[in-house]
């Protein structure tokens, strides 16, 4: 994703975890949708750091030091923001 687009999205709306780039760190800003509770149980909470490790039908990300595989439907419900680092 080109940097300009990232900036655009950041200014008006947040990225979903599906759109996020592999190998980068993000901070979770919002969870929205029916899968929220399921996600929160596994550690996806607001203000938590998450690193996306792989794309695909199911994404892999690392949250609180644990790797989690989650379907893209669920990942769509996680809104993230890139961290500065």
């Amino acid at each position: 994703m080109p940097p300009s687009l990232v900036q655009d999205l950041e200014s008006d709306s947040l990225l979903s975890l599906t759109q996020a780039q592999v190998g980068c760190d993000f901070q979770i800003r919002r969870l929205e949708g029916p899968g929220c509770d399921q996600l929160r149980n596994l550690g996806f909470c607001e203000s938590i750091q998450v690193r996306k490790l792989a794309n695909g039908r199911n994404l892999i990300c690392s949250v609180c030091g644990t790797r989690v595989a989650l379907s893209s439907d669920l990942a769509d419900q996680v809104k993230v923001e890139p961290t500065d680092s």
Binding site: Q38, L42, T66, V68, A69, L70
Partner: peptide
């Protein structure tokens, strides 16, 4: 009735 999604921990 309640859609469930694939969500699985990958332990070290």
């Amino acid at each position: 009735e309640v859609p469930t999604h694939f969500l699985l921990e990958l332990p070290p």
